[in-house]
Design a binder for these strands. Sequence first.
DNA 1: ACCATATTTGTACTATCGTCCAAATATTCA
DNA 2: TGAATATTTGGACGATAGTACAAATATGGT
Lengths: 248, 248
Amino acid sequence: MVRKPAKSGMKADAKIASTRKPNMREAILAAAEELFSTYGFNAVSVRDIAQAAGANPGSVTYHFKTKDGLLLEIYRRHCGPMNRRRSELLAAARRVRDLQDRLEAIVRAYVLPAFTSGSDLAGGGTRFTRLRAIMSAEGNEVVRKIIAQTFDDTSHAFIDAIHESLPHIPRTDLVWRGHFLLGALYYTLVTPERVSRLSRGSADGTDAGHAIEELVRATVAALQAAPLDQPAPVPRKAASVNPGRALT
Amino acid sequence: MVRKPAKSGMKADAKIASTRKPNMREAILAAAEELFSTYGFNAVSVRDIAQAAGANPGSVTYHFKTKDGLLLEIYRRHCGPMNRRRSELLAAARRVRDLQDRLEAIVRAYVLPAFTSGSDLAGGGTRFTRLRAIMSAEGNEVVRKIIAQTFDDTSHAFIDAIHESLPHIPRTDLVWRGHFLLGALYYTLVTPERVSRLSRGSADGTDAGHAIEELVRATVAALQAAPLDQPAPVPRKAASVNPGRALT
DNA sequence: ACCATATTTGTACTATCGTCCAAATATTCA
DNA sequence: TGAATATTTGGACGATAGTACAAATATGGT
């Protein structure tokens, strides 16, 4: 990792005089999370992390044994709270009467914790989700196991819930569409500036609240689309969808 | 890069006796493309590439000067043909009369070249798109410039075309939804096995043809959704969307 | 205050990284 | 064929990677 000129000021602040970090282990975890989620796992060295945390490289080895162990601990920290939050929101969503509202609530229950879960509510959630996005692209082996163990259960629970709200759509299509949702979610967190650029400033890709609303709206519509075994996605004269404004 | 036990047989085949590669430069490019798109840029060493191509590490430096230069050349190879293909398909799509069909054709014009463009039609397109996905996650600086220079024009052209088919939806929403499309597209190519896993074998994530159809269907529906400034995404009793099968 | 334990430090090890270079070898064309 | 050029080779360079370890220091219970 070479980028980002410095921010030498911050590093200096971190180890002036002999001010001890109250909990160096946490500082290392936080620094690693931030750096990994920004530059990727491979591009960040243990020394980079130690320096950002104001610690000694050996300290990282002491607390987490290996670099993979450090990554593993980051996942352990976040997976529990995040999936717990998702389960709570999903349970609440299931109790929504109106089928249309329920579907939206389910999608929201999936998306929201990705932006806000974790210990640190201000940006902590997006940081971890961004990390997951990068790791799924880099294809780390340590992570692959956690994914299959921890996240697949949650994914199945959500797909099942969606299937209950849309029983006429084959599960296979819902798996695809849920997959697209996760991809869109990841990409939004990894490359938010692209949205700002392409919209020429009229949208802010880093505005989590707005991103969530756009994502939910688009996903609900995608989930409701006719499955592939039905040739016509929408009857020709589909004016009622947008009342007052015909398509042409 | 340490993974994947070996495939030592292939390497041996590549340099048996004194059989010279007819064009070592191409072999290096192909090997680099394959490895980068599988493991990421940072995880693959110049020596890995040279070995996979049956070449000498020094040969890579000779042809491409630096590792970044090699990556740059891969992008140069693919960007031209891919965007040309997209332009052709987009122009054809614009000529479709029916607005619904036109929208679908536009989306298809965007998605299709990502799976099939490039010199090598069998997997060559997906390989390069997978590479782009990984690079956007890793955030390489060399790539960021190419993206903004080469791809933003295409993106704008597609957003404009979509906007013509859906004039009642604000451009900002279409930017978001186009962004989601790209994210879904990337994620599908990066983690296709997840689809197979979650669908318990009833879907094949690596089936490009099927992935395209699912992606197009979901995206068209997402694009048509009511914009955020309209509170109700669909009027309550929306039965006509799926003729014959009411929502409940 | 003292000892046992936990943590931090500084340094060193080996491996591998990207890149360079001179010599060896192929290729091309007068 | 022979000279000019293009390519390949094998080895080397300094830099940096992850990790290990003994010494130094901080901490907490008695």
